[in-house]
């Protein structure tokens, strides 16, 4: 009994340490974003400033044409459009493909699957210039549609992998029962498999969203104007040769991190069940 208590204490202490390690850097970023620039560059550092400065958030949310606010707000919108578009397309395409991998028997099944997974190993840089020319020739350069298009190619293999593994854990009998009643395969997929695969689907949505929101190299090369530039590119530009201040980068960073944070927090409980049932089990 005593040993159990000691163990439990130890585990709780360790959990506290981990939690602090996770939160401290972000806490500093939050503080920096509301510390006046003049205080921020003072040594020794005043962790909690005597006055708070919310002007960076004001700049970002309401700043006029001459501030970073305009670019930032445009980037926020672009990132949202690209991420949601990528998730939607990847999920639809991925569900269909994953079903084929999990349930159907066809020639080259394994080879095709391996091919999909192998694309993940290719460095993005190897496709940049040809893709740039393709996007340009079909008029999708510097558009959110074009970026969504190329991001899907990164996200779909992931979705296929997670979902096909998950679909395989759903008893085929369920589906067969429905099909005896005259439902088509697609009907069974929609009415039987998808509801049963909810954790896997949520896990896939979370992965897809985080991947799409995080994508940098394609956005860096394929977008340049406010019409399509995404947040990672906008933030990397804050920190260039003519930066303003770390507080502004921090404020922008926090806002840019909020959507994926919300998605991650909402969906995290499905990740474990979504993955546990499929992807990581032998």
């Amino acid at each position: 009994m005593k040993r159990a208590t000691r163990n439990s204490l130890l585990i709780h202490v360790a959990a506290w340490i981990v939690a602090i390690a996770c939160l401290a850097p972000i806490g500093y970023m939050v503080l920096a974003s509301i510390t006046p620039q003049r205080v921020l560059i003072t040594t020794p550092l005043q962790w909690i400033p005597s006055t708070f400065d919310f002007s960076r958030y004001a700049t970002i949310f309401a700043g006029g044409a001459d501030s970073v606010g305009t670019t930032f707000r445009a980037a926020m919108l672009n990132s949202t459009v690209v991420a949601i578009g990528t998730v939607a397309i990847s999920m639809v395409v991925g569900i269909l493909g994953a079903y084929a991998f999990a349930r159907l028997r066809f020639r080259f099944r394994r080879a095709i699957l391996v091919l999909f997974l192998a694309t993940y190993m290719l460095p993005q840089i190897a496709t940049l210039i040809p893709l740039y020319l393709i996007l340009n020739s079909i008029g999708l350069l510097d558009t959110t549609a074009g970026l969504t298009f190329v991001d899907c190619a990164l996200v779909i293999p992931f979705v296929l992998w997670i979902l096909s593994n998950y679909f395989m854990t759903i008893p085929e009998e369920l589906e067969e029962a429905a099909r005896v009643d005259g439902t088509t395969r697609m009907g069974a997929l929609w009415y039987v498999v998808l509801p049963a695969a909810r954790p896997g689907i949520f896990a896939a949505i979370m992965f897809a969203f985080l991947l799409a929101w995080d994508e940098f190299m394609y956005a860096l090369i394929f977008t340049s104007s406010d019409a399509s530039k995404t947040l990672p590119v906008a933030i990397s530009e804050f920190a260039g040769r003519y930066t303003t201040d770390f507080g502004l980068v921090a404020a922008g960073g926090i806002i840019a991190a909020l959507p994926p944070l919300i998605v991650a927090i909402i969906f995290q409980r499905y990740v474990v069940s979504g993955m546990a049932a499929g992807a990581v089990k032998g």
């Binding site: 340049s224 990397s236 530009e237």
Partner: peptide, 12 residues
């Protein structure tokens, strides 16, 4: 139609 990029990204 103007587009602005950071100095670090301009050359590329």
């Amino acid at each position: 139609k103007p587009t602005f990029v950071a100095y670090e990204a301009l050359h590329d």
